[in-house]
Structures are given as structure tokens and as C-alpha cells.
Computed example of a mutant assay.
Amino acid sequence: MGVIHLIRYSLKLFLIGFAVFITACSSDSPSALNDADTDMAEDASYKMANDEATEEKALGFEGEAEESHEQEIAQEDEQVVKNQLPDVQMIIYTGHIQVEVDDLTTMNETIRTKVAKLGGYVVSSEEYVSGEGERRHGRIQLRIPQEHYEEMMQFTEENSAKVMEKVSNGQDVSEEYVDLESRLRSKEAVEERLLTFMDQAKKTEDLLKISNDLSAVQEDIERIKGRMDYLDNQVAFSTITINIQENQVKVSELQGRDDLNTGEKAQSLFMNTVNFLITIGSGFVVFLVGLSPILIPLLIAGGFIWWKVRTKKRSHSNE
């Protein structure tokens, strides 16, 4: 609109100047021509002013229309988000239950059978022995369809001798999921525009820039889809962790004759003792032989001193 307005304004100025030029060059009826030129100039100025006012008014109406359209789009987007809120809330359920049972093996098999029947699966399982009396303990983590969550918790409680702890938690992710859907639509719209720009681009620099932007947008799309898939799975299947403690105390059995191995153990102890004595004797011999260059002169000197002392004692006793 600004360019058209400038062209019209330039054309009108040209017409006014042309009219003034003709008036100045003409010699006939100068007063009449001057009056005519004056009227033409006034008419052109009035028309130009009217045209400018009309264009400004049109621009004002156009701006108001654009603002009104943007407000309508914002209201429509808000209404779309409200309509997209799920009828059923998306809640992630997690449960933890600690029980005491008479037999750990039987309870483990019972839980696995029930989980398979309800359409769930076991994530991990472990058994270990600890504490006084070597009590057996077990831990099972399972995923169960959300509609059977309470049923599985109740089943575990009913099939145990004692419930020591029971915890159930829920996390509402409905708002996060709706936000992810909105972000996904926005990113997919950007992806579509970038693909269109890529088809129309002719310069290598433009293609590289669009390709980089497209790669970043596609990464965001994959990240959003991954998070949505994770939330879908967590909502569809609840997680339950069951800690099991067996209340039976393991009693050691009396060993039989074959388990004692008395003869073999006695023979082994005897051979170990002989080997120990041999080791000590061998070490003593090595000690004497190794220190013989020192021990022999010391023994000779000691023997000579002992002989001299004894000889003196005998001579004194004879006197």
C-alpha cells in the first residue's frame, strides 16, 4: 500500500507542475489561464488530500481487521487446547507391598501365575538368605495393566500371612501429555514449512541452513514422541514391587557318617602335622648351614675359653 500511495502522489505532482509550465509559456488570456491553472491546482490538491485520507482510513481498517483476526485465532487455539484435554485422567500408579509368608517358593509361583493371567509380566526377581536363623527373602518387581492394579495389590495381601507395609502412589500426567501434543503439532508444522523451503531453495548456503534447522526440529519431534510413548506405557502398565519374607526358620539337619568323613579328616590332619615338623627341621638345618662360617669360630672360641676356665678351677682345687 505504501508504494502505490507514493506513485499516485508523484503522478499528481507531475500533473500540477505540467499545468503550471503551460500557463507560464502561454501568452493568450493570461488571467483566464491563471484562473484555470489555479482551479486545476486546487482540484488536484483536494483530490490528493481525499485520496490520502481514504488510504489512511483503509490502512486503519486493515490493521483493525488483522488484530481482530489474531484475537480470533488465539481464542480458537485456546478452545482447541480445552477440547483436547482427555476425558479420563492419565495417572501413573506405582505400588510397594512388603509381606510375610509361610513358604517363599510357593508365594513366588502364585504371584507369577496371577501376573500372567492378568496380562502383566515380571520385570525382575531375586531371592537371598539373611538374618538370624537364615530366613529366606525375595523381591519381585512386576508390571500389570492399570485396570488390574488394585486387584493385584489385594491378591498379594490376601495370599500372605502378614502385611508389614503397603504403599500406593499416583502421578497425574494429563497436563504434561496435552502440552506434549501441542508442542508436537507446532514442531510438525515447522517441519512442513522447512521442507517446502528446501524444495524451493536454489543456493547451497540456503540449503545447508535449512537442513540444519530441519535436523534440529526433527530431533525435537523424536524427543517429544519418545516422552509421549514413555508416558503411554507408564499409564497403561502400573509398577508393583513386592518384598517377601519367609517366617520359617531353617533348622540344620544331623550329619550322616558319609558327611563326617572322620578317617579322611584324621589322615589329613596327621599329614599336615608331619609336613609342619619336616618344614621346621628343614628350616633349622638351613639356619645352621647358612650361619656355619660364623658359628664354627664362635664354638671353637667358646670351647677354648671353657677349657681354660675349667683347667684353672682344677689347679686351684688341687692346691
Rank of each mutant, 00 (worst) to 15 (best):
E78P: 02
Q267H: 07
E109H: 09
H5P: 08
V274Y: 03
G119H: 02
I224E: 06
D172Q: 06
L180V: 10
Y93N: 12
E64L: 03
R143V: 11
G131K: 04
N34F: 09
D232Y: 14
V285R: 04
G170C: 15
F237N: 06
E191L: 07
L254E: 07
W307S: 07
S160T: 06
E165H: 09
A189S: 14
E158D: 13
S26T: 13
F284A: 09
T94A: 14
L13Y: 13
K313P: 07
T113W: 00
I91S: 01
L260K: 08
F21Q: 14
R135W: 05
I210W: 00
I305G: 12
Y149C: 05
I244H: 03
F18N: 14
D220M: 08
Q98H: 14
R223N: 12
T113K: 05
L295I: 00
E52H: 05
C25T: 09
D232E: 15
M48E: 07
V80Y: 13
Y46V: 02
F14G: 10
E72M: 06
F155I: 00
A53M: 00
V178Y: 14
G226A: 06
H316N: 12
Q267V: 04
N243L: 05
A116S: 08
V286P: 01
I296H: 00
Q234A: 15
K82C: 12
H137W: 03
T273S: 00
